[in-house]
């Protein structure tokens, strides 16, 4: 009898332990989702800002049609992307196109004096920063979650209940570190 009770107690403990792990995994996954939604809000905001920006700049930067087209094109590709992997690639392309555009703008004093454009530029810069900060938070959460579902004993629960690894939101080195060519010849 006593043996049975002990065995039952051990089984109950193990079950509670696994329930605890399961709940922790759910919590972590929700945190990842929440962190992702933080980024998503900012990405959407950036998509909304770009048409206005391009429209304002169009009249001034007539010789930079290609740069503007690149931005518009990168935006539509980013909006069409679905998986996080695709999205991070498309968004990093968009970041690259935008930073090239903002460098080009430096050569147009008239555009730089336009109040409307300056306000849009400030909003864009801020959104870029917010994306960067939110991305850091998201990646931290993903790292935490991925570690958890790979490590013993939580990996057993993760496999049984189909917890999959989350993807990092990464800006490719190419886009971030590429130095845009600035030519001083006109």
């Amino acid at each position: 009898m006593a043996g049975l009770i002990i065995i039952l107690a051990i089984v109950a403990l193990v079950i509670f332990y696994f329930i605890g792990i399961y709940n922790a995994l759910i919590r972590l996954r929700n945190r990842v989702k929440n962190a992702w939604s933080q980024i998503d809000v900012q990405l959407k905001r950036r998509h909304d800002l770009i048409p206005n920006l391009v429209e304002t700049a169009k009249g001034y930067v007539k010789h930079e049609r290609e740069t503007l087209e690149n931005v518009t094109e990168a935006r539509s590709r980013a909006m069409g992307a679905n998986s996080i992997g695709d999205k991070s690639r498309a968004e990093s392309d968009l970041s690259g196109a935008l930073s090239r555009f903002l460098l080009v703008v430096e050569n147009y004093p008239d555009l730089k004096a336009n109040q409307n454009f300056l306000a849009l530029q400030e909003e864009l810069t801020s959104t870029e920063n917010k994306i960067a900060f939110a991305r850091q938070g998201y990646n931290d959460q993903v790292l935490f979650f991925n570690n958890k579902i790979q490590m013993f004993p939580s990996n057993i629960i993760a496999q049984t209940f189909n917890f999959n690894q989350e993807e990092f939101f990464e800006i490719e080195d190419k886009a971030e570190k590429e130095v845009p060519k600035v030519s001083f010849t006109t």
Binding site: Q38, E123, S126, K130, G137
Partner: peptide
């Protein structure tokens, strides 16, 4: 002052 406001919001996100 949009810039001040934006910067505060950025730091709010960074500091969670």
């Amino acid at each position: 002052h949009p810039q001040l406001f934006n910067v505060v919001e950025e730091m709010k996100i960074a500091a969670n």
